[in-house]
């Protein structure tokens, strides 16, 4: 069931476009922002609101790398692996993170706190290696810096439970 509040938000998004079809990606963002990932139910709900066949919504979801069909960690840490960052050690950071957390890519830690993703160029190459935590930039990553970052996030989660 779609909450009334979210349905309202969805209708507002749809009204913002000259043609309704444009709203599908913003709606998927909305659902993912609130639920953390896009379940079959979420896709069916967006399809219903959009008046689109679910297969078409799924097509859109599966095409774009930022849409996730499985839950991620509460803090999803992404590291750029493109050339400029890789030249400055970005891929080592990625390996370091995965070793620290003992997880594969886009796979949450058992406590659900973290997941790690590899992303392509984030357009901040001057501050390489670059990453994002829940889409907020973090840069000039080093193994030590990443360890501190994990500790900070863990403390934040245990503290007030506030988001990133």
């Amino acid at each position: 069931m779609i909450s009334e509040a979210r349905r309202q938000k969805a209708m507002e998004i749809i009204r913002g476009f000259p043609q309704k079809s444009s709203a599908v990606i913003p709606l998927l963002h909305l659902w993912q922002d609130e639920e953390g990932y896009l379940s079959d139910d979420a896709i069916a709900e967006v399809a219903e609101i959009m008046g689109m066949p679910p297969a078409e919504v799924q097509e859109v979801v599966s095409f774009y790398s930022m849409f996730h069909r499985r839950p991620l960690g509460r803090y999803h840490i992404e590291v750029c692996r493109s050339l400029s960052c890789a030249l400055m050690g970005g891929r080592d950071i990625l390996d370091h993170l995965r070793r620290r957390l003992g997880v594969g890519l886009n796979e949450p830690t058992p406590d659900g706190l973290f997941s790690v993703g590899a992303v392509e160029c984030l357009a901040r190459c001057d501050l390489a290696p670059v990453g994002q935590v829940n889409l907020e930039y973090t840069d000039r990553l080093t193994p030590e810096g990443v360890d501190r970052l994990l500790a900070d996030l863990r403390a934040r989660a245990e503290g007030g439970g506030a988001g990133a």
Partner: peptide, 11 residues
């Protein structure tokens, strides 16, 4: 959609 590797001017 600035995505070209090594490009960060638009940002």
């Amino acid at each position: 959609d600035e995505s070209e590797p090594g490009t960060f001017k638009d940002h």
